[in-house]
Simulated scan of single mutants.
Amino acid sequence: MVTRRRRYAGIAHFPEALSVGSDALGLTEEVKIGQHKVRLTLPVFDPDSEKLAGPPDERLLPDSVESAFSDAWGYQSGGDLYRVGAARSSILLVPASNMATSDELRRLGESFFRWFDIVFHWATAWSGELVRQVGPKHSSAFNVITDGANIVGSGVSLGGVYLVGVPLTRDQVVGAFRRASRGEHLPPEHRLLLDAQAARMDGDFRRAVIDSATAAEVAIASAISDHLRSKKLTDAFIENLIKRAGGIIGLVDLYVGLGHALGVSKNKLMPELSEVRNNAAHRGWIPTDDIAKTAHRHARTVVGSAKPLPAS
């Protein structure tokens, strides 16, 4: 006999706040987290309290729950930037005698953090700002309301991640949620740019220039592959051609030879990106912050030209 699932209203706690614009407040989106379909609704701005509040819903949370989590929704950071820390959730779950120990709810919580990791990296790439591990651990990914208005949690914890950035648009929030639901990770060249940013912020300038140069190399190689596949050339031929290019500068020559532009000259890329990466990677040389900053700027230009992110 198949156990009938029941819809549980609750709250989904983001590992750390997402920075969004006012047009994203109140957004409702159906997402897939692990094997579960979950309806998430972002909070709205309450002008009376001047902070974010739980969104209106056809399945209202009990007043005691609204009160207990009144500070979880987030706040206005200034202007049109809001820090959203939680969303109202609606989930179909198999009822259990003790939902607090439900394996299904626990697995959902574990899947949620993997899902949010994808959301977070897309959001960070669009915001264009730095990333840092900070903040307290969170006791649960989800709190759901059982019979009698009891509150149970999924019991998973994760260190917080701080995102400083320009506000995400409604379309970008939707794009991040949908990509995470499909398991579509941020492309590696853009992830490497984020890694380089984080390394530079932490003072690891050697890692910053290595990741910056790798991001540029991956982006150019991928763009060359896309171009040549459109010409019906075989993957084996393309792979061999890229290997023979011999690194960033060889790939730049090949890419430009195919009729493309990168937005930064080879005369700058060679000494300020390629050579500093080689010295850092093969000689253990530690560059300065200014050198790492320049390398990252060039890499960002190359990646933006060769493999730009979609707008949302």
Score class of each variant (00 low, 15 high):
residue 1 M to A: 11
residue 1 M to Y: 06
residue 3 T to C: 09
residue 4 R to M: 11
residue 5 R to K: 15
residue 5 R to D: 13
residue 6 R to G: 05
residue 7 R to Y: 06
residue 10 G to W: 08
residue 10 G to K: 07
residue 13 H to I: 15
residue 14 F to M: 14
residue 16 E to A: 15
residue 19 S to W: 07
residue 21 G to P: 03
residue 21 G to Q: 03
residue 22 S to P: 07
residue 23 D to T: 05
residue 23 D to E: 13
residue 24 A to E: 02
residue 29 E to M: 05
residue 34 G to F: 14
residue 35 Q to T: 15
residue 35 Q to D: 15
residue 36 H to L: 13
residue 36 H to Q: 14
residue 37 K to Y: 13
residue 38 V to R: 09
residue 40 L to V: 07
residue 43 P to R: 13
residue 44 V to P: 12
residue 45 F to V: 02
residue 46 D to W: 09
residue 48 D to M: 09
residue 51 K to L: 08
residue 53 A to C: 05
residue 56 P to C: 02
residue 57 D to K: 04
residue 59 R to E: 05
residue 61 L to N: 00
residue 67 S to T: 08
residue 74 G to M: 11
residue 80 D to C: 02
residue 82 Y to L: 13
residue 87 A to M: 12
residue 87 A to Y: 08
residue 94 V to T: 15
residue 94 V to F: 14
residue 95 P to A: 04
residue 98 N to V: 00
residue 100 A to V: 00
residue 102 S to N: 00
residue 102 S to M: 00
residue 105 L to V: 00
residue 106 R to E: 06
residue 106 R to N: 08
residue 107 R to E: 13
residue 107 R to G: 07
residue 108 L to G: 06
residue 110 E to P: 02
residue 111 S to E: 04
residue 111 S to Y: 07
residue 111 S to G: 08
residue 112 F to W: 15
residue 113 F to K: 01
residue 114 R to A: 04
residue 117 D to H: 15
residue 120 F to E: 09
residue 120 F to L: 14
residue 122 W to M: 09
residue 131 V to I: 10
residue 133 Q to T: 11
residue 133 Q to P: 10
residue 136 P to H: 10
residue 138 H to W: 12
residue 143 N to H: 11
residue 143 N to Y: 12
residue 144 V to Y: 02
residue 144 V to W: 00
residue 149 A to D: 15
residue 151 I to H: 10
residue 158 L to P: 12
residue 158 L to H: 15
residue 161 V to M: 06
residue 163 L to T: 05
residue 164 V to E: 13
residue 165 G to W: 01
residue 171 D to Y: 03
residue 177 F to L: 11
residue 180 A to N: 07
residue 181 S to D: 11
residue 182 R to T: 05
residue 185 H to M: 06
residue 187 P to G: 03
residue 188 P to L: 10
residue 199 A to E: 01
residue 199 A to G: 01
residue 200 R to C: 01
residue 203 G to I: 00
residue 205 F to T: 06
residue 207 R to E: 15
residue 211 D to L: 12
residue 215 A to Q: 10
residue 216 A to G: 01
residue 217 E to C: 11
residue 217 E to M: 11
residue 218 V to N: 11
residue 219 A to T: 01
residue 224 I to V: 15
residue 224 I to L: 09
residue 225 S to Y: 12
residue 227 H to L: 12
residue 228 L to M: 12
residue 229 R to L: 13
residue 231 K to G: 03
residue 232 K to S: 10
residue 233 L to R: 05
residue 236 A to I: 10
residue 240 N to S: 02
residue 242 I to D: 00
residue 243 K to T: 05
residue 246 G to M: 10
residue 249 I to R: 06
residue 252 V to Y: 02
residue 253 D to V: 15
residue 253 D to H: 15
residue 254 L to S: 06
residue 258 L to M: 14
residue 259 G to M: 11
residue 261 A to H: 05
residue 262 L to F: 01
residue 267 N to Q: 12
residue 268 K to Q: 12
residue 269 L to P: 11
residue 270 M to R: 15
residue 275 E to F: 06
residue 277 R to V: 02
residue 279 N to D: 08
residue 280 A to F: 07
residue 280 A to I: 06
residue 284 G to R: 07
residue 288 T to H: 00
residue 291 I to K: 08
residue 294 T to F: 05
residue 299 A to C: 14
residue 299 A to E: 08
residue 300 R to H: 07
residue 302 V to C: 02
